[in-house]
Nucleic acid binder design. Structure first.
Lengths: 194, 194
DNA sequence: TTTGCAACCGACCTATCGGTCGGTTAAACT
DNA sequence: AGTTTAACCGACCGATAGGTCGGTTGCAAA
């Protein structure tokens, strides 16, 4: 019955969900404890404080999930089409409830970058890793693309637009505006081909 | 010495600044009171509660400033060039400290849309007003633009990208990534011309 | 069987939050 | 001058937050 690692994973999983829904600051430890059915002592046995719990959630839950999400479309034979299908599928399949929660990376970037240096550094590293992933795979098929393109610039642009559209959806409570931006994003990306 | 309207304006001004820097929830009334050099009684004489203060800040400070900021470039003879110059000037002139604070509208959208319906409605109305402003002025010069464009879609796309790049800057603490996205955004916008 | 320690418990602490309310002050009106 | 009331004061309140710590429990090694 007493499995330390299992307890730790449960805490991470529940915390990730709560932070995704409420943000880091608004997520209360007592709520996490209730959902995990553990005591405060158990949580503080595994994590030094709330901030360290947040870092662990970022590194062990959000970061791997984020890469696992973006890597397949970007590493497809045609990364442009891969991303278009990726975004379109998201727009089609995601529920409104999920959409309104936004992207965990973007949420934390907005909320925590200016407040805590530890979060800021981790978020920035993730942004750069994603940028490199996209830019590298664009340059892989550079023969098919317009000659004047700056791939890193294009990569940051794509991710910015996606995050901006996630943000936009939070106020509209429906997919309509998200769909519009995604459609235009796909049009933009296909135009990158000469 | 006793000027109710002046007190009210001072509260709004200081609150707008604090909310811009810290977000709505993280902004404490005691901090506002200290900066205004007033008592808690004074604040609650002018505003029913913190939420009503937030609404007033949005309606009386953020919304007018937002329109005053976007209207001139969009209503220029050439709205595409107007927006390009608008973004480029912002990228050139804004300080890192300001940049890191982000756009008040986008900040509140992220933080409050899912938490409070009153905020959500006001934010959505602002987004739609801005969208209409941009889309209308694009259609004004539609002769110069590609025929297949959906102006509302393009408008939401532009604003999403701008907000996404503001978010991105929060983690990088410098203008570099913001500059990159803005450059690509200008390239995109000029491509709207056939 | 005993011992040691990781794992876990939960009462308690301090700080801070938004909000209340009885009282005071200043200025305008009669 | 007296009265009324908007404007303002600040001590106080309950709720909740993150965090602490002495104690208990269960399992594994000696």
């Amino acid at each position: 019955m007493r499995d330390a690692e299992q307890t730790r994973q449960k805490i991470l999983e529940v915390s990730a969900d709560e932070i995704h829904k409420n943000g880091f600051t608004a997520t209360s430890l007592s709520c996490i404890l209730a959902r995990c059915e553990i005591s405060k002592g158990a949580l503080y046995h595994h994590f030094a404080n709330k901030m360290e719990l947040g870092y662990a959630v970022f590194e062990e839950v959000y970061a791997p999930a984020f890469i696992a999400l973006w890597q397949p479309p970007v590493e497809a034979d045609d990364p442009i089409e891969g991303l278009c299908e990726f975004f379109s599928a998201m727009s089609k399949n995601i529920s409104c409830d999920e959409l309104v929660c936004g992207c965990p990376l973007n949420n934390l970037c907005q909320e925590m970058s200016g407040v805590d240096e530890g979060f800021r550094i981790r978020i920035l590293a993730m942004q750069q890793q994603l940028n490199l992933l996209i830019a590298t795979n664009l340059s892989r098929v550079s023969r098919q693309l317009r000659p004047e393109l700056d791939f890193s610039q294009v990569a940051y642009f794509i991710v910015s637009t996606f995050h901006g559209s996630s943000s936009l959806s939070k106020s509209s409570l429906n997919k309509e505006l998200f769909d519009k931006v995604i459609k235009e994003l796909c049009r933009y990306m296909r135009q990158l081909k000469s």
